[in-house]
Amino acid sequence: MQYPSPLQPATLIKRYKRFLTDVILENGEAVTIHCANTGAMTGCGDPGDTIWYSTSDNPKRKYSRSWELTEKANGDMICINTMRANQLAKEAIASAAIAQLTGYEHLTTEVKYGNENSRIDILLDDPTLGKCYIEVKSASLLENDCGYFPDTVSVRGQKHLRELMAVKKNGHRAVLLFVVQHTGIKTLKPAKHLDSDYSDLVKQAINQGVEVFAYASTIETDNISLVEQISFNCD
């Protein structure tokens, strides 16, 4: 996935009200930009970090700049824009970069499904292979050299696991795909210490046949791509 225009650097002052972030531009000007992440973002942006932002030419937007990446002092890159996860997953599947999800004839997104008023992120369909329902999650929490998901209690994530288990029970393929958007994460686990219910549901889903994959990303200021599968461990 390439950005439509080059990202620009700034220095983070603070994030607040979930959607707003104050930064200092290269010219020394302090401005407010948009933050496209409603999560806790633990460790993904500390005052003084270098951040990279995109700029929109949409005149209807109140804040034309959007926080896309964080560059940590140790060189780790983090994509904080959670909307990029679905874009990366769709691109990777279409280009056959995810070996477990190849061979399907049709790919659609945001399809209504389930009994809890959900929309599946990606639906693959094929006359021979049948249907494959894929929920995509963006993982960026790094603690003690391990990646975790979620970064806070995720009632929505719990719902999606229940929906995937129902899909599998109805005879279709069900996949939970973690798009890892922190270059420091080499292995991923459910964050039992933050959401024990989600962790328990992941184990239950795997036992019922839901497939779980985690793929790491290369993150640069001009492009992001999924590159390799990393381990996902429920222990």
Rank of each mutant, 00 (worst) to 15 (best):
residue 78 I to G: 05
residue 63 Y to A: 05
residue 46 D to E: 11
residue 67 W to V: 00
residue 78 I to L: 08
residue 54 S to L: 08
residue 74 N to E: 10
residue 57 D to V: 07
residue 39 G to N: 09
residue 72 K to L: 12
residue 77 M to Q: 13
residue 62 K to L: 09
residue 77 M to R: 14
residue 45 G to N: 04
residue 72 K to C: 08
residue 75 G to F: 11
residue 74 N to T: 02
residue 58 N to V: 00
residue 74 N to A: 09
residue 78 I to H: 04
residue 69 L to K: 06
residue 42 T to C: 02
residue 83 M to A: 11
residue 68 E to M: 15
residue 80 I to V: 13
residue 81 N to M: 03
residue 43 G to K: 04
residue 41 M to F: 01
residue 52 W to P: 00
residue 82 T to L: 11
residue 68 E to H: 12
residue 47 P to T: 09
residue 76 D to C: 04
residue 36 A to K: 10
residue 74 N to M: 09
residue 46 D to M: 07
residue 80 I to F: 10
residue 61 R to T: 01
residue 63 Y to R: 15
residue 71 E to T: 03
residue 54 S to E: 11
residue 43 G to N: 03
residue 84 R to K: 12
residue 78 I to E: 07
residue 73 A to Y: 00
residue 75 G to T: 01
residue 55 T to K: 09
residue 63 Y to C: 05
residue 41 M to E: 05
residue 50 T to A: 04
residue 48 G to Q: 05
residue 37 N to S: 09
residue 55 T to Q: 13
residue 62 K to M: 10
residue 67 W to K: 07
residue 79 C to Q: 14
residue 46 D to V: 04
residue 69 L to I: 05
residue 46 D to Y: 02
residue 71 E to Y: 06
residue 77 M to N: 07
residue 56 S to H: 05
residue 73 A to L: 10
residue 52 W to M: 03
residue 62 K to V: 09
residue 38 T to D: 13
residue 81 N to P: 08
residue 80 I to Y: 10
residue 83 M to G: 13
residue 68 E to F: 15
residue 44 C to A: 12
residue 79 C to M: 12
residue 80 I to R: 15
residue 37 N to C: 06
residue 71 E to W: 06
residue 56 S to M: 05
residue 71 E to P: 04
residue 44 C to P: 00
residue 40 A to N: 15
residue 48 G to W: 02
residue 57 D to Y: 15
residue 79 C to S: 13
residue 82 T to W: 11
residue 80 I to H: 11
residue 75 G to S: 10
residue 44 C to W: 00
residue 54 S to M: 10
residue 64 S to V: 12
residue 48 G to T: 14
residue 83 M to Y: 09
residue 36 A to E: 13
residue 49 D to C: 03
residue 58 N to W: 03
residue 63 Y to H: 14
residue 75 G to I: 01
residue 48 G to C: 04
residue 53 Y to N: 03
residue 61 R to V: 01
residue 51 I to D: 01
residue 78 I to W: 04
residue 76 D to R: 02
residue 70 T to H: 08
residue 43 G to L: 03
residue 75 G to W: 10
residue 42 T to Y: 01
residue 49 D to S: 04
residue 69 L to F: 12
residue 42 T to W: 01
residue 38 T to W: 10
residue 72 K to R: 13
residue 70 T to Q: 10
residue 54 S to K: 07
residue 40 A to D: 03
residue 58 N to P: 03
residue 40 A to G: 01
residue 78 I to R: 08
residue 68 E to V: 07
residue 72 K to W: 00
residue 34 H to Y: 12
residue 50 T to Y: 06
residue 77 M to G: 06
residue 51 I to V: 12
residue 76 D to W: 01
residue 37 N to V: 00
residue 52 W to I: 03
residue 48 G to L: 06
residue 58 N to C: 15
residue 68 E to W: 14
residue 66 S to V: 00
residue 43 G to Q: 04
residue 36 A to H: 12
residue 79 C to R: 09
residue 53 Y to C: 07
residue 39 G to C: 06
residue 59 P to D: 04
residue 65 R to D: 07
residue 76 D to K: 02
residue 64 S to L: 10
residue 71 E to I: 01
residue 35 C to P: 09
residue 55 T to A: 12
residue 56 S to Y: 04
residue 47 P to H: 05
residue 73 A to P: 03
residue 77 M to K: 10
residue 47 P to G: 06
residue 74 N to D: 15
residue 71 E to K: 14
residue 60 K to R: 09
residue 44 C to N: 12
residue 81 N to L: 03
residue 47 P to N: 08
residue 40 A to E: 05
residue 36 A to W: 02
residue 51 I to N: 01
residue 65 R to P: 00
